[in-house]
Amino acid sequence: MQHVEISTTRANPLVDPVLQVWGWEIPVYLFLGGLVAGLLALSGFYLLRSRTASERGAWPQAPMLGVVLLTLGMGALFLDLDHPWYVWRVYLTFEPASPMSWGSWILILVYPALFAAALLHPPERVPFGAGLLAVIRRGSEWMWARPRLVQAIALSNLVGGIALGLYTGILLGTMVARPLWNSAILGPLFLFSGLSSAAALMHVLTLVRTHGLVDSTYADLLLHGLFQLLKPPGRDPSTAGEAMVRADAAFLSVEGALIALFVIGLAASTEVQQQALQLLLTGAYAPVFWCLILGTGILVPLVLQSLELAGRIRHTVVPALLVIAGAFLLRWVLVQAGQVSSWT
């Protein structure tokens, strides 16, 4: 074997000895972005598919929750910026080659869609601002009266969600300099990971509601939204939960397959990419990748969910929480390991 030693006098913070430009902020942003993308897509899908008014209300507060989570995510992104007060510069231009520019504009477009969808499902009660609520209610009714508009909102939610989910992966995927990210699979992978975590989140909320852990008359806007989220009028909450479990299992399976494709793709690629892959498979990130992402993040919840669906065990929040944790760790590890991977 050839002996190679490389030494450098460069000692730039964040860059040496290995790239560490992104800490917790970007994984959190990507995670929440993916989660919101999943919520958007799911609620948009149900809004589009449902025929009756009662069915339309199956996932009433998902958009409101999405607004909150997306805002948190963008907050994390903002915290990551080193020149944060120049952030408006993003919206003075559109850079077609920059995924980040695309992402900024997608986020701008997603917000109105989210708000519109939120308006369709106003809360029943709020602690203050009842007058405003009445106005909103009227607007909501006005919108419901126009099926084309509702359809358009639903469609924009669905499309926006998919775009947002894909973007979170493509953002990393276009960084040619980081061999680990250099894969077209990252877009779909992050999309499906987002979908599965969104389904898991809904499942959690259904269960919380089913078990009556929260006083349903509690009128706080956010909590109300959270716990009303999956209230399907005229439908047994557990059935709704089951639907989510089913969806989650499907998304998880696709996610697992995409991870396999991602791994195979890198393994079949150039030497630098194979080396980058080793970071996940055998290197420093291997225990987290195998145990916490593939193991407790995908396989264990899949098994538990299939047992739940088969009626062998009770529905619990456990698989859903594992899925959500796994989805976060997936982004965490990919962001961290990707930065470490390099061409040299």
Partner: peptide, 12 residues
């Protein structure tokens, strides 16, 4: 196997 893999073994 190495130290890193040992942690996976530990988990299993």
């Amino acid at each position: 196997f190495g130290d890193t893999a040992a942690l996976g073994v530990a988990f299993a």
